[in-house]
Design a binder for these strands. Structure first.
Lengths: 205, 205
DNA sequence: ACTTTAACCGACCACCCGGTTTGTTTTCTA
DNA sequence: TAGAAAACAAACCGGGTGGTCGGTTAAAGT
């Protein structure tokens, strides 16, 4: 698999700038030529390495997006005792990168999920797989927190995960407008309130 | 303004089916010909009534989207004493239409906001204006609720509005996948929890 | 009945995009 | 060092898109 060739270097260059442009302009609004122009490469090079634009994008999803989602949104949460604190920090960090107009991969996932809805079913499946992994890990982190006494035992962990992801996806849409920093601050204050409502209500009898 | 002519009828037909296709396929993925084919009309008719595709879309935003947003997401909330109950019902209704794959105009707004981000600044401004109106009204409804004793006086109404809209926008992305009905149920359960955390904490001294 | 004008048709244009093909350069290897 | 294979260049193709334009129908006014 690991063809220690020049091949890999070029493919990775294409994929990283591809993701950049797909993220900022959208998949359908980014032509293959746009990516190649930025790299001073030609169509021949592209179609030598990739079957099609769709195949190219799917490889980006699996090689870049999936791994980034894991390292930024999943790995920081799992394996700790108190998931609520971890979730708060994780969201805070992710939104902070968003404030600085850097690539926030949660937002990337959200954008692509809306862009491909009802259009490219194949790509949609890959995107949704990534999302599912995130969701499952968030649910199990909450359940573990419940087991360890950091989350109230009446909390519906699946519902909480849905709500958390929803709010996160949504706030990224709002942050493209005016004063993203202020919006982040407001969002985080209410997120903390919500997370507090998940804490154990009283000392168990 | 009101040219009681055939003009208006044709323009409205174009706009309604235009919104339908733009919503389900996206703006850039819907050609003018797609719309015209569905109406058995020709290019000549279209460009007789509208300057451009962009102008056409902006008119759709102002004539259809803005009014729908108002009647579905703003008007049901304003003018009542307890905003928390109204918000819950309003979101419930809106998501119920979403479950049935009908056009949920909040989702429409969310989709367009993500689709045009960084692309068409002119359209973006129009979309954001609509969003702002929604946000302002939600904030003032919460403040009024605070005044009337339905919302805790420590609540940051702007932050709460941000959080509510965020969660609403976000859940619509999740509902395109598996089991939208289940996701709606989970979302609503947590929304109720959050809204409860906005209620007055204790009887005032 | 005749003219005017609003409403509409459909061929056409320039452009863009994904993809193919043919040919050239680089790089590895025997 | 010769040749084969890998890596890339660039012209080209077919389909689609936003938009134009001269012409045609239908209605309205006189």
């Amino acid at each position: 698999m690991e063809k220690t060739l020049k091949r890999m270097a070029t493919m990775q260059r294409m994929q990283t700038t591809g993701l950049e442009l797909f993220y900022s302009n959208g998949y359908y609004n980014t032509s293959v030529d746009d990516i190649l122009k930025k790299l001073s490469l030609s169509k021949g090079a592209f179609y030598y390495h990739f079957e099609s634009k769709e195949d190219f994008f799917i490889q980006i999803i699996q090689n870049l997006l999936a791994r980034k989602i894991y390292s930024v949104l999943i790995e920081p949460i799992e394996g700790h005792d108190n998931p609520l604190e971890r979730i708060e920090d994780c969201f805070d960090d992710a939104l902070e990168t968003a404030v600085h107009n850097e690539m926030d991969f949660g937002c990337v996932l959200n954008n692509f999920l809306t862009e491909f809805r009802g259009k490219d079913q194949k790509i949609m499946k890959h995107l949704f797989d990534i999302f599912s992994i995130w969701e499952v890990n968030l649910v199990s982190a909450l359940q573990k927190g419940k087991f360890n006494g950091y989350v109230d035992r009446h909390v519906d962990c699946e519902a909480a995960a849905t709500y958390l992801i929803s709010s996160y996806f949504g706030v990224r849409t709002l942050m493209v407008g005016t004063a993203p920093s202020a919006r982040k601050y407001r969002f985080m204050s209410q997120l903390r309130m919500y997370l507090k409502s998940l804490e154990p209500k009283a000392i168990a009898v």
